[in-house]
């Protein structure tokens, strides 16, 4: 055996353990999902399963519920990502400016990130409950009218965003804080000398230097927002009047309540296409940033 060949064999021996799992649990599923998407595959009518080419996609394109679900998901992303960036930035700047006690507060705001979805849902259901919830109890004691946190079409989504902010902004703040601390002191000193303090200093010096980190935060959270489901599942079940039923929940229900696996797979691919657009955007922007 030539040394080159031997080295190739050796290399693949290192790759093999991972690669086998990768093929089995990533590549094969992708192929299966592609196959399902062009099939009519209803568990409730096994006899009529069969190839339907792109009919699932055509149906999905016309599916009003899917359109509504995309609007809901987009709405969540549009509310969540900007507010997350603002809140996390405020936290990071505050933490960065703290003379002492920074690590303690950093740990405090990071803590909710450790909570599992189920516990988070249990807690916030209790807070948001219309009649017996904590928030409305406080409002009532202040002499204010109770707020229908989860049962009003226009308030339910902001309520979910608020919970998500509590849950995730600490993690994002920590990322931004690390970015801030990576900025060499001399930049701030130079800005100070130029009289660019405070707000102006932030916009003219800090923010541009943090561009790559902010970009990362925005794009990963945008991709995450398109997977919107567990938060709504736990708090509202998609209601009121489907106002919080996003794409992922609709697909999940189609697959696991309606048992229409082929149709669900087709819709998943449509969601994947949207997510991929953001993924490539990230890739492209980062490349551009790097060069």
């Amino acid at each position: 055996m030539s040394p080159r060949k031997a080295r190739a064999m050796l290399g693949w021996a290192y790759l093999l353990p991972y690669a086998s799992l990768f093929v089995l649990f990533v590549l094969v599923p992708i192929v299966v999902a592609a196959y399902l998407a062009v099939m009519q595959f209803d568990l409730t009518s096994p006899k009529s399963a069969g190839f339907v080419a792109f009919r699932n996609f055509a149906d999905a394109w016309r599916d009003e519920y899917l359109q509504r679900a995309f609007v809901v998901t987009a709405k969540f992303a549009a509310m969540m990502v900007p507010s997350l960036v603002v809140v996390a930035f405020a936290l990071a700047l505050g933490l960065n400016a703290m003379p002492r006690g920074r690590n303690a507060v950093r740990a405090m705001v990071f803590l909710p990130t450790m909570f599992t979805v189920a516990v988070t849902g249990i807690l916030w259901q209790w807070f948001y409950n219309l009649e017996f919830g904590l928030f409305n109890f406080v409002l009532k004691n202040l002499g204010l009218a109770p707020v229908p946190w989860l049962s009003d079409k226009n308030i339910a989504m902001p309520s979910i965003v608020l919970m998500s902010l509590w849950w995730t902004s600490g993690g994002t703040a920590v990322i931004l804080l690390a970015g801030l601390q990576n900025i060499p002191r001399m930049f701030h000193e130079a800005a100070s000398l130029d009289g660019a303090d405070g707000w102006r200093g932030f916009w003219s010096v800090t923010f541009p230097l943090l561009r790559p980190v902010v970009l990362f935060v925005v794009v990963t959270n945008l991709i995450g927002a398109f997977q919107f489901f567990p938060q709504a599942q736990l708090l509202t079940g998609g209601g009121p009047e489907l106002a919080t039923r996003g794409v992922v929940q609709y697909i999940y229900e189609t697959a696991f309540n309606g048992y229409r696996l082929g149709y669900a797979a087709a819709m998943s691919w449509m969601l994947a296409a949207v997510v991929a657009v953001f993924g490539f955007l990230q890739f492209w922007l980062m490349r551009k940033e790097a060069s």
Binding site: F22, F25, V26, L27, V28, P29, I30, V32, A33, L36, F226, Q227, V248, I251, Y252, A255, L261, A264, A265, S268, W269, L271, A272, V275, A276, G279, F280
Partner: peptide
């Protein structure tokens, strides 16, 4: 492959 949403993998 990391771009593909996790949802797609569930059934396969």
């Amino acid at each position: 492959s990391m771009m593909v949403p996790g949802l797609l993998f569930l059934v396969p």
